[in-house]
Nucleic acid binder design. Structure first.
Lengths: 213, 213
DNA sequence: CAATAATTTGACCGTTTGGTAAACATTACA
DNA sequence: TGTAATGTTTACCAAACGGTCAAATTATTG
């Protein structure tokens, strides 16, 4: 009797772990490109190099696959913000936050696009996470920023929109990668574009927040 | 014999114009939310309040619908950048560019999301437009910005990444609207959020470019 | 080894999908 | 008003879709 892994009691064999990884890897490819509704199990199976029923042996539904991916991404996606430290200096913290986010856009563009696709369709799967844990985390960090402004360490500004602007400028290099490359052209679109972006963004935010070097 | 409008010779009746508008309006709803592959003709027909074959009488394929939408959006989407004037002052030009882009995010969020969806899936329909006309336009405006920097009117910075950062920060309020609302919470997520964003972004860019008021 | 459990697949099912055919309804206009 | 062009809908089709099933294969273990 085939007992789908998901419904099982405890131990996961090595083969299970490997196959699930293999599936999620393929699913990330497809979901990040076409969104939940635009993705098909057949295509994921093809990318994963296994048969569709085999895929459905590990994840019972398409939604289960998507949910597993989203949860994993959401979890790690906010790490940079969590690392934002109230005790550090504004310059160092904001600088490294930008850098970390930009590194994620460079190293995990599919994860960024998966998230973007989910939000674009109204975020039905992560609405609660956005209104709950995410909001809480942002509220907390916004308070830190506000305190910095009050203490005269940075210019007075809306901390929420500051965070939004860091998110958007950095994630842009993952979500709109095709456009960025097209506009930069062959010469300027090499991997160096991330260094250029980092330099520019640090300049922008340091200046915009009136943080003198 | 039914002759689909698209293949017709010249005159478009009033009813044609109206129905096509009605269809594109519905299609924009669906495509902007679920992307090309995630959208279905049935759903568009339902939103448009007409039967599927009727819809296909005006647009012969799903792709024709999508293409019509994309082309229209692409055309108007770049108007703000075209309005970017080399003769104006850096402060006024950049300010009004930000403002215009932000207004578009506020007034035409679906168009922004349609575009985002298209780029996310690799921009197969607009690849040429991106590499050709768009790149040309950006190259031209980048040159203007570079000249301003050379003349000491603004801080030296990468003009391409400057443009990217204006695109991303403004479009963020359309594409990630759900997330923005969730994070801001009920009190701060009213229509005033666009004014707050405008104020913040102008401050950011004026400071970041070392443009003193 | 035997036998039991876990894994994999080809064949299949009901539904949804993009799209068509043809009949029917409506409008435009001589 | 009559008639031809335009517009609309019902019924339908083949392919693709998400998912199931039972049989076959492979791994695990007593």
């Amino acid at each position: 009797m085939p007992i789908p892994r998901a419904a099982q009691t405890q131990r996961r064999t090595r083969i299970q772990e490997a196959k699930e990884e293999q599936i999620l890897e393929a699913a990330l490819d497809v979901f990040s490109m076409h969104g939940f509704r635009g993705a098909t199990i057949d295509q994921i199976a093809e990318v994963a190099g296994m048969s569709k029923p085999n895929l459905l042996y590990y994840f019972r539904t398409k939604e289960a696959m998507h949910r597993a991916l989203i949860e994993r991404v959401l979890d790690t996606w906010l790490d940079p913000l969590r690392a934002f430290d109230a005790e550090g200096s504004p310059e160092a913290e904001i600088r490294s936050y930008i850098r970390r986010k930009l590194e994620m856009a460079r190293d995990f563009p599919r994860e960024s696009r998966l998230f973007a696709n989910e939000v674009l369709r109204g975020a039905p799967l992560i609405e609660d996470a956005l209104k709950g844990p995410l909001k809480l985390l942002v509220d907390e960090k916004a308070e830190v920023i506000r305190a910095w402004a009050k203490a005269g360490k940075i210019a007075k500004c809306d901390p929420y929109h500051l965070i939004f602007s860091i998110w958007s400028t950095t994630q842009h290099y993952a979500d709109f990668d095709v456009q960025v490359r097209a506009v930069l052209g062959q010469e300027k679109a090499g991997e160096g574009r991330f260094e250029d972006a980092a330099r520019y963004l640090e300049q922008l935010f340091m200046g915009g927040l009136a943080i003198s070097k």
